[in-house]
Amino acid sequence: MSFLELDRVAKQFGPQTVVDDFSLTVGKGEFVSFLGPSGCGKTTTLQMIAGFLDPSRGAIRLEGRDLTAMQPAKRGLGVVFQSYALFPHMTAAENVAFGLEMRRVPRAECRERVRAALEMVGLAGYEERYPRRMSGGQQQRVALARALVIRPSVLLLDEPLSNLDAKLREDMQIELRQIQRNLGTTTILVTHDQNEAMSLSDRIVVMNQGCIEQIGTPQETYERPASAFVSQFLGKTNDLAATIDLSATPRRLAAGSWSVPAPAGIAGPVTVSIRPERIGFGDAGIAAKIVTRIFQGNHWLFQCESECGPVIVIRQNDGQPQPAEGEAVRLAWRPEDMSLRGAGGVA
């Protein structure tokens, strides 16, 4: 199972610990994303895998072999940089061929593999172009072809799509996923864009200030966030203060005038975290007034002022009439749609 393994890896720059206690196993062919805000140590971790930085502590293993003892040039990993780092004095074909030349691949085979790689990224016919004469998207594709043509055991992508405009980024996401599926290359993607991480990855590693907050599938991290940070970072969420009413039997969990039987093993003040699209308007629940109503095409976004503070609600635009601004409503949700965090942490 474990193809690439990071074992309690840490990196220190002087007194500053930039990555701490980072443990992760990646399966062969898996697509894993490092997701976190800017400066949380994603690039640093990726560069330690690539070998451009040495970890201060911990071990990195690839198929059981210790990677840290190996020169970066010998690791055989493909890297795509945020700036692409193409060789400006070489044509697209020469850029892609560089890694093969270093491996002394025979000329004829080299030419064929370069052609195939450029075709795979949709750049057939651009062989003789210099990078300066290509658009950002095309440069990005050359960088991808250059990293993939050497058939790397692991593909490392450092914010590869962040310099592209929104439309192109979506197209590239789909293409990237397809290429990765077809080749079956184990891939690690660094990104600060939660949509990108969720639409591309098998698993997401959510990072904050150099530490792992949660590792899980996109669905797990979205629906069962392990911490307040994760739930805030992965899309919009409502955090409501709630209490456990110990006097009632069975005990009840209450947020304002909304209440359900309390789950076992939790006591004291808790935080109820509930996604805006899981909240419905009903006859019972917490009392609220709609402050603004924003139409966003396929859905409506409501900002409400409730007895428990501000709440965001998202409703599908399914043709049903929606409450108007200023209208008093009651908000409710199914108990299984919320996640609870006690003062002591995860529940």
Binding site: Q47, A50, G51, F52, P72, A73, K74, R75, G76, L77, G78, V79, F81, Q82, S83, A85, L86, F87, F98, G99, M102, R103, R146, A147, I150
Partner: peptide, 17 residues
């Protein structure tokens, strides 16, 4: 590009190359 040498390194080039 500050990463250009790293790019070449990851493709298997030695420092002289």
């Amino acid at each position: 590009d500050p990463q250009i040498e790293n790019a070449a390194l990851s493709l298997g080039a030695g420092s002289f190359t």
